[in-house]
Simulated scan of single mutants.
Amino acid sequence: MMSNLFSVFDPTSSIFSMSLNWLSTFLGILFIPMLYWAMPSRWSLLWSITTTLHGEFKTLLGSTHLGSTIMFVSLFSLIVFNNFLGLLPYIFTSTSHLVMTLALALPLWLAFMMFGWFNHTQHMFAHLVPQGTPGALMPFMVLIETISNVIRPGTLAVRLAANMIAGHLLLTLLGNTGPSLSSTLISLLIISQILLLILEAAVAVIQSYVFAVLSTLYASEVV
């Protein structure tokens, strides 16, 4: 019996007191065959979604930063691989920890802010006051916009981690009730677990897409 419900997310694998759980972040690379990197190839068609994402991110960013779409497509690929690997038994879900999600969101946000304030200072000041704001409300709007801008990396990180934790906790809670159920209820439990796994697979893709798109939108505001 678990002493703590959240103990299912604790890192446990270690060698010489060094945690090995975070190596699960790189497991997604092992699932990609070598022929994938030979472009074009039949294997590349399995991941043709990157072409669609490239076109969408290019539309959001415009023609000012053409190479930036590669970074956001890579970000989406990294998160979606980790989300899917977390659905497999005995594999550590790194995206359910704020250490991982903040490590992705915070450097991106800092880079956007530094680039915007150093190169487009007037444009960044203009973003603090929406067009048509009455003069009496301008100080309050500057404060509100500043706060909303500062909490962006936190909201990105918490949104991804919370969504991954919620589904895993629900699966764990339902799974722990199995030994005390009758055979009829166990069959219903298995069906509900399968449906939840399908839902979690959809959440894994959606949250990866949301993280990548919001990062792209934040980058488009500083140019």
Rank of each mutant, 00 (worst) to 15 (best):
L87V: 04
S192M: 12
L169T: 05
Y90W: 05
F112C: 13
A126K: 15
S63V: 02
T12R: 15
I206M: 04
N163Y: 04
F6K: 13
W109C: 00
Y209C: 09
L137M: 12
A162T: 10
R159Q: 13
A162K: 14
M100G: 00
F57I: 07
N176R: 14
S44N: 09
N21V: 00
T216D: 01
A161I: 05
L20S: 00
L217A: 01
L197F: 14
T184K: 14
S182D: 07
P11A: 14
S41H: 07
E145R: 13
N176T: 10
Q207G: 00
V129P: 01
L188H: 14
L87D: 02
T50I: 00
L137V: 02
I206N: 03
N163C: 01
S19F: 06
S208G: 11
I198Q: 09
E56G: 10
L30E: 07
H54K: 09
T146C: 08
L181K: 15
L195Y: 01
V203K: 04
T64K: 15
S19I: 02
L189E: 13
F115E: 12
W22K: 05
A162R: 13
F81T: 06
S24N: 12
L110F: 09
M124L: 10
E221I: 02
L170D: 07
L156M: 11
T177Y: 05
S208F: 01
I165F: 01
W117R: 15
L30I: 06
S19T: 06
L87A: 05
F16I: 04
L188N: 13
L173H: 07
L53V: 01
R152G: 01
L199G: 03
V80G: 00
P130Y: 04
P40H: 11
N83W: 04
L104E: 01
T177W: 06
W43F: 10
P153I: 08
I198N: 09
V203A: 07
N83V: 01
Y36V: 08
E56Q: 12
E200T: 00
H123R: 15
I198D: 07
Q207K: 02
T184D: 13
P134F: 09
I186S: 08
L195K: 09
